[in-house]
Design a protein around this nucleic acid. Structure first.
Lengths: 239, 239
DNA sequence: TGTTGTATGTTGTATGATGAATCTACTAAA
DNA sequence: TTTAGTAGATTCATCATACAACATACAACA
């Protein structure tokens, strides 16, 4: 213990997180090699001057992150392969604009290839799902809504046609980063219907290409579709 | 409390994880809507019949996963946007073969598009980095090593040339899923040098295309390169 | 030699208490 | 009535302690 109030650490945010960050850092710096045992909880209690509750909270974080593995009766060990570490799009180091642009670009990379795969593997049911999503989006547009959710559902239907669950999962993961970036909500109300109609046409081009099994055309369509969305978002708000 | 031994839950793995899984399920099922408050710790203690320690451990997991946010003095709330949820390739539902294939395919989708971006944005320094990685790989081959790490370094250098940190991060994330899948370690020692030389040629084709800014050629080269790796891994072990 | 018991150390779980942040309801003043 | 302020209740954060479950090493024994 450092003092009666508590803290060798500063304590602004939760103590457990601060301890977790420090341990994470030491692990990634190689201070604790893969496979090595971390100091015991009681040792960490002394080192950090916090209670065992906090230490356990910190180690719990590292465990969820797949960085360490705890064994009852033995100790806590750094994972040999950190392959279980999750992927995050942390926007800490980037400003909002770059964050959205890079996330969109990541999505574009994925989807252009996806749609090519989808074109070679789609079934009749997949095509039907895509049209169904487009119909729902159209209905949303007619109802005066933006239809962003339905738009995304279409892209998910394309991803599903790849028959690769990881691809669909990844697009689902990217979803929340993309949807709020859509510039439609800032768009001139006058121009909205025309924009929505052009969206629909782009989508239809993509579906047709997938239906025909034309991977190149599908890829080109998707690239053009997303690139236009990217441009609208990045430079031309309120045009 | 259910009985003196402790368990309304079964308890084989850690109690905290079981509670966390149940809560996660209820959240994703919509039982607790986004923004809604979870039952208080003491309420959960009664519901699950476990101690506060376990409940807090479970909530800690959900917090690290970005599913909930705890506020001192107010309660624990389901996140409005779950956009902070990390992405994982969990192989639970897939057998090992499908897992590797789908992960490889995900990588292929990414890299084919990456390399096209890289071809349009690369600087002299990027090209230099790529050649440096290839040289190291060649040296490793000559030293009788597999050079898988160096191989991956080359691909990271390509990703870096996109100037999009998320793309590079994502490839780094995929790395551990890919590297152990490489079939080189199962390959006939006689054929290894020839295989390594062909790898080198494929890599060189890609670099040349990037250098010339030829996105199509770079994409084709990468696609061919990775597709061959996929085939070797999937069907032709120990040939 | 091979097996069993025991001691010790580690994480997992339970429990009670205190502190800090927040919310609610009530009171007092304008 | 409206507003500001205060007191109390609620809730999570942290601390401290104790015991249970498990792993390991080693001594005791057949």
């Amino acid at each position: 213990m450092v003092d009666s109030k508590g803290l060798a650490l500063g304590m602004r945010p939760k103590l457990g997180e601060r301890v977790a960050d420090q341990l994470r850092e030491r692990i990634q710096k190689g201070d604790f090699a893969p496979g090595a045992q971390l100091p015991t909880e009681s040792a960490l209690v002394e080192q950090f001057g916090v209670s065992r509750t906090v230490i356990r909270e910190a180690i719990s974080s590292l465990r969820v992150d797949g960085l360490v593995k705890a064994h009852q009766g033995r100790g806590v060990f750094v994972c040999e392969d950190i392959s279980q570490q999750p992927f995050r799009l942390c926007s800490k180091h980037l400003n909002e604009k770059d964050h959205i642009e890079q996330a969109m670009e990541l999505r574009m990379c994925m989807e252009v290839s996806n749609v090519e795969l989808a074109a070679s593997r789609r079934t009749e049911a997949d095509i039907k799902d895509m049209y169904a999503a487009l119909d729902k989006q159209h209905a949303a547009h007619l109802a005066g809504e933006l239809g962003q959710i339905e738009d995304f559902q279409f892209h998910l239907a394309v991803a599903a046609a790849t028959k690769n669950s990881y691809i669909a999962d990844f697009l689902r993961f990217l979803g929340p980063f993309i949807i709020p970036a859509n510039a439609m909500q800032h768009m001139d109300q006058q121009k909205l219907p025309a924009y929505q109609e052009s969206l629909r046409q782009e989508h239809l081009v993509i579906v047709e290409a997938i239906k025909e099994g034309n991977a190149n055309a599908a890829g080109d369509g998707m690239r053009a579709h997303l690139r236009r969305g990217l441009q609208i978002n990045s430079g031309e708000r309120n045009v």
